[in-house]
């Protein structure tokens, strides 16, 4: 069990973790100031006989200070976050050379459609595999997400990528895996009684391995087998 964030498995995982740490530092400072202050006041100003509290209605200077500092911090944080947000999720963030994979979610499985050897979705050599997502490392992947029934959510913790899959909408999401290995894809939006078991295996291959897998899988699909 780790007390920290999971492995950084995609290109933007580092950025998101960096932002997470920045917020941790900011909130940590605020947390320490407030909690230490509270404990200090609780001990220092506890009631003692014969003592009277200091009669004051406040201080404008103090109000200005503790309005301005959080305001400036928050706006700065907003600007930094937005910079990354536009890179990760913005309208034009999807790299033009991204490799397309179709994901169709339904209660309670993930149907992954691969573009086949020609690398294009919507052609005759596409084939579909249930609950297995194979991707090459080091290459941006663009997912075309669609849903059969209710809202699901595509989530791979190590990639730091999450996108709801909404019926009636065609949503694109992208990521670029960096570390070959096996991961898990989970549904993170309550989608019915089988929500907890709506999981799929994610295999990140080296490009060579991926090409080999693609050849095998396409061949098997052509022979009429829908899944491995």
């Amino acid at each position: 069990m780790s007390w920290w964030l999971p492995l950084k498995g995609s290109t933007f995982a580092g950025e998101i973790d960096g932002l997470f740490i920045a917020i941790l530092v900011i909130t940590g400072i605020a947390f320490v100031i407030v909690e230490a202050g509270l404990i200090w006041f609780v001990v220092r100003y506890r009631a003692r006989p014969g003592r009277k509290a200091f009669y004051t209605h406040g201080s404008t200077r103090a109000e200005v200070i503790w309005t301005a500092i959080p305001a400036v911090t928050m706006v700065a944080l907003g600007l930094v976050s937005n910079h990354y947000w536009v890179q990760i999720k913005g309208r034009n963030s999807i790299p033009p050379n991204a490799y397309p994979i179709g994901i169709h979610a339904k209660q309670f499985e993930w149907q992954v459609t691969y573009p086949g050897p020609d690398g294009k979705l919507g052609t005759a050599d596409d084939f579909t595999v249930r609950n297995q997502l194979h991707v090459p490392a080091g290459r941006p992947i663009v997912l075309a997400l669609s849903s059969e029934d209710v809202i699901h959510s595509f989530f791979v913790p190590q990639f730091r990528v999450r996108q709801d899959v909404v019926p009636g909408m065609d949503i694109k999401a992208w990521f670029q895996a960096t570390v070959p290995g096996t991961y898990e894809l989970g549904c993170s939006q309550l989608c019915g009684l089988g929500h907890y078991r709506m999981r799929a295996q994610v295999f990140v291959h080296t490009p060579e391995e991926y090409d080999a897998w693609m050849k095998r899988a396409a061949k098997r699909a052509a022979q009429g087998e829908a899944s491995e």
Binding site: I16, S81, N82, Y84, I88, K89, P157, R162
Partner: peptide, 9 residues
């Protein structure tokens, strides 16, 4: 912070 939300949402 939207990018972090994408992970912890």
């Amino acid at each position: 912070a939207t990018p972090v939300d994408m992970f912890i949402h």
